[in-house]
Design a protein around this nucleic acid. Structure first.
Lengths: 244, 244
DNA sequence: CGACTCTTTGAGTTGCTTCAAAAGCGGTGG
DNA sequence: CCACCGCTTTTGAAGCAACTCAAAGAGTCG
């Protein structure tokens, strides 16, 4: 490996859009170079599957841009989305034998992936990285447990309202998005990254129920739905009320 | 600190019943001594609350013996149990500001607790501990996400059947319990550590629905219910079928 | 302009919840 | 030992939210 390569590899991470939000945030320059040498970039097309539930865990990685869904299903074929991975999020199962759920791209997604073995070895030698990963995993566990309250104890309207508020919050953290998404009582129209069926799969509902409640929230003047893939929040306070 | 103290402190952990299952498992003798010096033992009575949702995270710890519930509730007062902590499990929120859910003892519970600040500092200096905690957190996240499938996509019978099978598996990992709990197609009567209402709060159901399905499974010859707090599985295969 | 997919709307059914009351169990004291 | 009390669990009846099944409407793409 010559110096030019090293520099250019460093550059790749330095200019990375998620450099400060992903688990690599606290690494030193020399560590970044090392990590870069075991990783590679990969682009998934919408609908492409990255990991399969129950298969050997061979890959882990960071989402750079795009959106992934993590999901499992019952034997009868009902699907439950157990998480969405936005830019900066880590996916895959380090230190484990098999991937516990499937991972599929919902939109064209750029990633930074590692062979799991390589990543595990690197992580064990770099406590700063393990620490970041631990913090991220703890946060994700908290978020997942909060979602259990939604799945177990909320009615359809509360679920949908909570989902929309959560999505706005998540999207406004992403780069290049309107910071107005967080301000006042109305939120300008933004693009929903997923369709009705997948919203249903996140909320543990059917597509019909999701659709009916979208319609109701629109009729009640809380939402506007300029197109199927766009939502505007006309009255955030009212939506928060509906979220319970 | 004199040698006698050190030895006796080491002894405490060495004889600990969860020594090989908790996050301290991989620590060296000298690390154990240090960890011991910042921890203390505490016994909770049944019903006693250890942590409150939304409060400053001041404590973390390991369950040595007993059972804790982790739970949140909606503003309307509906409760959702988001996890149960058995012996060997870690509870509390390291590296974070506030406890994301309440923690309460369901039975008399012995714990080994640490001030969160002390624990955080210790963990950062001992990567082996952080690694164990990371592995445990990853496993817990997997378990929690599998539970989302239950909450979002299963009907009441599937939920109860899955719960019972899961509980038998968890209990049989605990010390001093009949190893027969894992063997064949029938499982001898064992004590349910929680009542019907709490089972309902785990499964996202009402107590009446839980009770009805217990009765149905008994009528169908799959379970026996010698008393309210005891269950025997007469036909594990059938129960697994019902779990979906 | 059709063919396809996704979404919305409608009608009817079901399973879980709610509300109410009875039954079971454990503990305490007469 | 039994009677009584409080608490948990079971059972019953009625209501309703979400589901299923079915079809029409909207949007997208060749």
């Amino acid at each position: 490996m010559n110096v030019t390569q090293v520099l250019s590899q460093t550059e790749i991470c330095q200019s990375c859009t998620i450099r400060n939000r992903a688990i690599c945030a606290d690494l030193h320059a020399d560590e970044i170079v090392l990590l870069n040498s075991i990783g590679r970039h990969r682009t998934l097309t919408a609908g492409e599957q990255l990991l399969w539930e129950g298969e050997d865990a061979v890959l882990v990685g960071n989402v750079v841009e795009g959106l992934l869904k993590l999901s499992t299903g019952t034997s009868e074929g009902r699907e439950q989305i157990v998480g969405l991975a936005y830019p900066g999020d880590f996916v895959g199962r380090p230190f484990g034998g098999t991937d516990p759920y499937g991972v599929e791209a919902l939109a064209e997604t750029r990633m930074c992936v590692f062979r799991r073995q390589d990543f595990d070895a690197f992580a064990r030698e770099h406590p700063r990285l393990e620490h970041k990963l631990l913090e991220r995993t703890l946060t994700e566990l908290d978020r997942t447990r909060r979602w259990m309250l939604l799945l177990g104890r909320m009615d359809a309207e509360q679920k949908l309202a909570t989902f929309l508020l959560d999505m706005v919050e998540r999207l406004s953290g992403a780069p290049g998005l309107n910071p107005e998404l967080t301000g006042g009582n109305t939120v300008p129209a933004f693009a929903l990254p997923i369709g009705r069926q997948q919203i249903a799969d996140v909320l543990g509902l059917t597509i019909e129920t999701v659709s009916r409640h979208f319609t109701r929230l629109k009729k009640d003047g809380i939402l506007d739905l300029p197109s199927r893939r766009e939502v505007a929040i006309l009255d955030r306070a009212a939506l928060q009320d509906r979220a319970g």
